[in-house]
Every structure is written in C-alpha cells, then in structure tokens.
Design a protein around this nucleic acid. Structure first.
Lengths: 332, 332
DNA sequence: GAGATAGATGCAAACGATTGCATATAAATT
DNA sequence: AATTTATATGCAATCGTTTGCATCTATCTC
C-alpha cells in the first residue's frame, strides 16, 4: 500500500504538503495540487485510517452492543443505526451479548481501548459501573431500548403506554380476561410493559394474569407457546393474550391453533413490540408498532452529537421516548 | 486515558520494558513485573488498540458486507460470524448494501484503507474488480452465500441441489404442476436454485412455471404474495409452489389463504432457504434448512486462515459447499 | 580465569498520518 | 520604499505502541 511518503516523493513535495492538499486544510498551489493528485492516482493511494485515527484521536466508529440481531426488534434498529452512521461518516462495530453479562463485559472491554468513539447499547444492566468508567474515559455512551441508567442519554419507546393502551384496547373490544406473556422482568422495558398492563387492568377492574419468559432471547417462541398453557390454567375463561414480543406471539398463535381455539373469536392476541413480521403472518397480528428504524437513526444522531460535544466539553444528556402506534390486524 | 508512558513513569522503567512485561515478549524481572502490574492497576491502563494496530500492521477486525441483516438468512450467518470472530479475537464491522452496487462500493472503500484485515462479503457481483484490487492490496476476501468469483474462497450452500431435491420431493408427493417463485436471477444462488428446479422438472416431465422477484430485498413478502396470482394465471391446476426464500413463503401462504386455497391439500408450499422462521409459523413450512450459523463460523475460520496465510504468503483458496437438509412440515 | 550465555533493561526508530512553527516569496497596503 | 498580509511549503514533533540493537550484570562452562 502506498503511503503519504510515497506520494510526496513522487510529487516532489513534503508529506505535509500532500496532507494539506488532500484535506484542503491550508493553502496549496494549484500546480502542486495537480502534481499531487496525479501521484495519488498513479499510486492509487488511500489514506490509512488507522494512522489518521491515532493522530487525531478519533475513530469514526461506533460500537453497537445488542442482545442479538436476528429476529428481533434490534435487527431493525441496527439497520437504522447503520444507515445513519454511514451518512455521518461512521463505521459501526457490532457485538452480540445474548443478554449475557459476561459477554457484554467482554464486548465493552473490547470497545473501550480506543476502538470506537461511542457506544450504543441495549444493556443487561449488570455492567453499569463499567459503562460509567468507559464514559468517564471519554467515550460517549447512549442507551437504546433499555434505559438502565439516567446518567446516559437514551432512546426508548413508551413501553408503559404500550402495555396500558394494549389492555384498554382489548377491554374496549370486550375482553375481560386478559393474560400477559412478558419477557424477563429484570429487563426494564418488560418491567414497564408490565406496569402499564397492571395499571390498566386495575383501572378496568380485571384480575391480572402474567407469565414471564426466561432470559434467553432465542426461546421467545417457546415461551409464548408454553405461556398459553399456563394462562389457560390460571383462567380457563381467558379471552385475550398480550405478548411482549412478536416471536412470543408466533408461539401463542401456534399453541392456540393446536388447541383449536379460534383467533380472534375466542381469544384475541396482540403484541406490544411490533415490527415487520406482524403484517406478514398468516393471521396478521395486531400490535403496538415501534418506529425501529427511526429509533436507530435517532440513536446515531445522538451518539454523534455526544461525540462532538465531548470534544467541546459540553455534555447534553437527553432522553427520547418514541411513541408506539397501535395497528389493528386480524388477531383482534 | 493512561498510556504506556504513564505506566513506565510510575513504575520507573522504560516503556519498552512495560510493553515487554505486558506482552510477555521478552525477559522481565519478576520484581519489575510486579511494579509494572501495580502501576497498570493504579492507572487502570488499557492498551490503545489503534496504536497497536498501526505498529503491528494488523487490525484484528473483519469487515462483513451483507445485503441486509434483518429477516433474512444473513441475520443468522452474521451471528455465527460474530460468535466465532470473538472467539478468535476479532471484531466485526458490518455494512449493509441493500444489494445496491453503489452502497457496496462505498462499504468496500471504507473497509480497505486499513480498517480491517479481511472482508466477508455477499456481493452484488458488480464490484469484483474493486474486490480484486482490495485483495491484491493484501486484504483477505472470502465470499459468503454467493460465489461470484472463483478467485476468492467461498462458503455457500448447494442451491442447485435444493432446487432439485425440492421438486423431486414434491413430485413424490404427487404434485405435477409445481410453480417456482424465485429471487432475482442475476444473483447466483437464485440462478442455481432455478437450475436445479429446471433440471428436476425436466426429468419429471413437468412443465416449468417461474416468476422472478425484483431486486429489492425488502419486497420478498410482496413478491411471494404477487407470485401466487401470476402462477395461477399460468396454470390453474397449480398444485405446489416452491419459493426461494422464507419471506416469499409468508407472502404465498397469505395469498393462498385469501383465495381460500387449502394448504397442503390443494397446493403445497416449500421454501428453499429455510431458517428458524419456518418452524414458528402458524402453518409450519417445509423447507430446505441451511446450517446458517455453521456457515458463519466456517466463514470466520476461513477468513482468519487467509489473514494468517497472507502474512506467510501462502494463499490457499478453498470453496466449501454446505448441504441443506429437507425438513418436512405442515405445508406439504 | 577467560569466554560464552542467559537474564534484564534502555535507546531510538519505526508504523502513517496530522499539525504547530518557521520560513520564503509574492502581492497588497501605507 | 517599507511594512503588512496572503499564499505556499518544509521541518520536525506527535499520537501510543512495538521491536531491533546495544549494553550490562550475573551465572555457567571448560
């Protein structure tokens, strides 16, 4: 690979001149520029971004830490992140944690050490101390989906409202026995969805029925499937099931079908975290749709703001809450 | 952030000694080591990976170029890649192209310039010249899913066999009017799936019926949906539909349901690129399942081999073909 | 007891860029 | 004509590491 030095030699000027010419960072004689461009062309010179990073103390990279990118809302958020990041001149580095705190720690440790300028994370919540350390060391941190710590800016959806509106909607449809298959409650969004569900159920004078998923992201389908049995046991008059995630919804529909229970006539189903899959199902699923891509775009905008602000020592924490919108489909 | 120099000063030794102590790369007196570790601890020193990269000419990062990571086989492959990469001490940088050659070019140009040691790519096929350039400049390149160029090692599935076996299977089930909803034929795996389909149909003495999807990855559901109408128009006696991708299958099922056509009694459906979704559907879908995660793991192993081999100037191109396995489900 | 060897450390040059400072010429201002 | 100002370039330090080479002591070998 040709370096600046090679270009300089070929163009018979100093490396500094070449650098200035290529970055338009100071006066360079047009003639000289021409020579330099010619040399660049001839050697097909490409600046070494690593060297540039080292010197400028800036990586132009964003670390993204997610529980898992396949078949979940994160997949779409990451798309948004990537899109916007590219637009703003950043690369993204992705790390999957499977919601395992150790994996997460490993990811984060990898990212600090000057690999990235900022980290966008959907954290397990078990490494907040490390995150603060990282933040203190000058790496921007913003939280996605899960606002574990007020310290760091965040982009989330209004999960509480999702749970609340979900119940109210089903209640308005005539349901009185509304079960809820939730995710692991030690993860904030699930806790909040429950809160909304709980409040609404109370207001409606209904008795709540909740089952909780295990930690494992990949078992959501199975958890939804198994949840149906549990809910029916708790209340045979069950007439609606709310699930936290689309994949659980698939499991629920599957289980109901096997029991020959009619959707939506006998039991209605809705998801609180809708993304594209809901509209593509055989029986399309009513859900609270999250503007996932927009959230990703916003996250990137936010982290870049923080990165730039850090340089000027102007922190400006902010917490953005996106509204989900209820989309009515066949399951209700 | 503390640097080697800071540690050296605190431990009253030279930076070189610190470096050697931390990397176990030469003799360092135990006493000195102790002092150094203490200093490291005290300053919570973390090595700057950028500087290390620059000096060692190695990035320990792999670039991954995919059409899109959500709701596609790529999502799972990337999981495998990431998993294995972490194990081998590499970070991954992801780029989405949406199968747009310009995006792809942009990605690649970003990756060259010393950002990564190797690139794993599912290419549009429009930038092979650039890829050769990149490869020639010392960056390892391996192809995933799409073997566009024999020049570069590859990991693919046996798409031809998928198409062939799919037809044979349906034929054995009694189907004689087997339609095929394929992806864009200028993309190799689709071309090969067609080839297998074509050969089997010929052998079976059936007349082929094919519709082709547009380029756009996101429209697969819609393409499947629309494909049903087209196929039925071509042959009202249609008794089976093969789709290239799961998402198309969702569209097909949806369309058949709207027409009140019974699956599998009247028309059977199967997908040639199965991943997890097939087993989670309301009517589970028969499909040729791809060992996506394994493919990802293999890809990472392969690129790392190439990266290491490059260092020793021993290229060893290889082309790996994974077999897909037929999993029978409710749609047939 | 002379020479070889292993153990321990420091000096300084890389890696490939950017950038503050100095310098030189040309053009503009007073 | 003297002084500023704009234009144009080079020198050398710097970012934070790694590493070849030189040096020095202590131990070992014959």
């Amino acid at each position: 690979m040709a370096t600046l030095k090679d270009v300089a030699k070929l163009a018979c000027v100093d490396v500094s001149t070449v650098s200035r010419a290529l970055n338009n960072t100071s006066y360079v004689h047009p003639e000289t520029k021409k020579k330099i461009y010619a040399a660049v062309e001839r050697l097909s010179y490409k600046p070494n971004l690593i060297a540039k990073s080292l010197r400028q103390g800036k990586r132009n990279a964003i670390g993204v830490v997610v529980p898992g990118i396949n078949f979940s809302i994160f997949s779409e958020i990451v798309q948004g992140i990537e899109l916007e990041a590219r637009k703003l001149g950043y690369s993204i580095m992705i790390c999957n944690t499977n919601d395992n705190p150790d994996s997460e720690e490993e990811c984060l440790n990898r990212f600090r050490n000057g690999l990235v300028d900022g980290i966008i994370i959907a954290s397990t919540g078990q490494n907040m101390r490390l995150l603060r350390d990282i933040s203190a060391s000058g790496i921007a941190v913003v939280q996605m989906v899960r606002k574990q710590d007020k310290e760091f800016s965040s982009v989330v959806a209004d999960y509480d409202a999702c749970g609340y509106e979900g119940v109210k909607y089903l209640y308005a449809k005539g349901c009185r026995h509304i079960g809820f298959i939730n995710g692991p409650m030690d993860i904030i969004p699930y806790k909040e969805r429950y809160r909304g569900y709980h409040r609404a159920m109370k207001e409606c004078g209904c008795e709540e029925m909740v089952t909780e998923s295990t930690q494992h992201l990949g078992d959501y389908f199975q958890d939804g499937y198994a949840g149906v049995a549990k809910l029916l046991e708790k209340d045979p008059e069950l007439d609606a099931i709310i699930v936290a995630a689309d994949l659980q919804g698939l499991g629920v529909i599957r289980a109901l079908k096997e029991r020959k229970i009619k959707i939506p006539d006998e039991i209605k189903v809705m998801s609180l975290t809708g993304h594209s899959i809901g509209s593509m199902m055989e029986t399309t699923m009513t859900s609270m749709e999250m503007p996932a891509k927009e959230m990703g775009v916003r996250l990137t905008g936010m982290i870049v703001e923080h990165i730039d602000a850090d340089a000027d020592h102007q922190p400006n924490r902010q917490h953005v809450v996106f509204d989900a919108s209820l989309v009515e489909r066949e399951t209700t």
